[in-house]
Design a protein around this nucleic acid. Structure first.
Lengths: 121, 121
DNA sequence: ACCTGGTTACAGAATAGTGCGTAATTTACA
DNA sequence: TGTAAATTACGCACTATTCTGTAACCAGGT
């Protein structure tokens, strides 16, 4: 994915949300502040390095906020920004779509155009 | 992205929609049947190989339907299935989100938690 | 020395692009 | 009449690019 300037908002959004982790991190962050180590526990299959990179990407996109606290054994908090919170229901909707359409997607029901014809008849 | 079996519907959905092309193809297919060459014209930056692969992925996911007509000059039509059509408004919503939150994301307004506090005060 | 959050270096895997080949029919031209 | 070229939707091999993981290392504070 080259860094092409596209004025298409869908493309821009997907540039941020694409991949395995972004939506999952949003999901885990939706009910409050989490620390780096919390997020690792939430999803143990993400590597240390990738988690840091993904979080930074989301931070730069203005979706999560990073807060570093001075002192102790070091502590960094992550939480959603207002735009990030607004994104949560949209992502949930995608998950719902997956479940609701499960049978149709598997059961090869035919095209939507076909369905329209059937309804019209 | 390994082929890990995850029962998380969000993860499953993103496995299909991730990347630069899937959402764009959905976008171009939303108002009717298109041929392979139409889709190439709609997005001239996708290579023929990748377009074929992406379309096949979407077909296997039950989102688009492929219809090959016999005979030469060879002709193949693509259109959305019913689940695919249902997906369209969700993707549009993501695009809208990008535009609506543009200022907030850029203008570093602070976290959502902060916003809640402000409202509460 | 140990903890947490993060970075760097390198390796291997996954993904994307280029160019060539193919099919049967039509059109283009000498 | 012969033949060369274009058309359409790919598949295949090869290369380029990007992504992801492992492991090591660093910072500041107890």
């Amino acid at each position: 994915m080259k860094d092409v300037v596209s004025r298409c908002p869908i493309e821009e959004t997907m540039r941020v949300l694409s991949g395995r982790w972004p939506t999952l991190l949003l999901y885990y962050l939706k009910d409050g502040t989490k620390r780096f180590s919390d997020l690792r526990r939430d999803n143990p299959t993400v590597s240390h390095r990738i988690l840091a990179l993904e979080l930074r990407k989301l931070e730069e996109a203005g979706i999560v906020r990073r807060t570093a606290h001075a002192g102790y054994p070091l502590r960094v908090d992550y939480d959603l920004t207002a735009p990030g919170l607004k994104l949560v229901p949209l992502i949930d909707a995608l998950g719902d779509w997956w479940e609701v359409t499960e049978d149709d997607r598997a059961g090869r029901v035919g095209s939507a155009a076909e369905a329209r014809l059937v309804k019209a008849a």
